[in-house]
Nucleic acid binder design. Structure first.
Lengths: 121, 121
DNA sequence: ATTATAATGATAATCAATATCACTTATCCA
DNA sequence: TGGATAAGTGATATTGATTATCATTATAAT
């Protein structure tokens, strides 16, 4: 998978796996420093990218143009709050149940990723 | 809606309405310059933001960290190609029909926007 | 243990997006 | 109709998230 083991990558991945808050790079960096005080922000960026590339994490883009990361690779929708900016998992199905949990839904975007017909040829 | 009319805003909105390519700011700027050669990039940014704020356009964030814009406010999913980066509308329902049109779907993200339970109180 | 090179950490560079500000122009109203 | 007011513009500086660079460190094969 990876060419070599590194303590930094292990810590970055552990930090990401142990939270459900869909953190930003900076948050992961702060948490990782509690274990490896010398770890640099570039290393956190690099390893998060690598994890995404290897299918071990996903990027969640928020309207404030920041990347959030999620190590939960099961297919599941997210909820982004326009007030506090938090990113949360949505485990129920459809608007009705979300509303019952207290979420006020204003809109919903669905995006498919892959290869378009032109490029597939 | 807007406090004053401006030719620039009209042109920006017309450009956006007349395409289905979900263009970037730069593309809208280039098109707008064909009508108003003096229009500045800041004005295009400003007016696209205003259109979004007033519910006349939507932002589509792509994995290359660029904003694309869409004046089609009906609820519809998008397809983003990892090869050419294009953003396309998906009019059919479910993976099967998309696949039949030649799209190779690798993943799908759904995001709800609104106010979370904590902020709603 | 030696060697090759992947990975790191500090920091410079990039670039999309935003803020600033002097100037222009749409709209109001006397 | 013409001047006043302030919204809107255009040029450009600034910001800030992300990426690139490169000397150094550390993994893993021999």
């Amino acid at each position: 998978m990876f060419q070599r083991y590194s303590k930094q990558r292990e810590v970055v991945y552990n930090v990401l796996c142990q939270t459900k808050t869909h953190p930003t790079v900076d948050w992961v960096h702060e948490e990782a420093k509690k274990v490896l005080p010398e770890i640099g922000i570039a290393t956190v960026y690099r390893n998060l990218r690598e994890l995404v590339k290897h299918g071990m994490a996903k990027v969640v883009l928020t309207p404030d143009n920041k990347e959030h990361f999620d190590a939960d690779m099961t297919q599941h929708p997210h909820f982004i709050c326009k007030s506090c900016g938090c990113v949360m998992d949505v485990t129920t199905q459809g608007h009705t149940n979300i509303a019952q949990k207290g979420f006020v839904v204003e809109s919903c975007d669905t995006t498919f990723f892959g290869t378009c017909p032109q490029c597939a040829n």
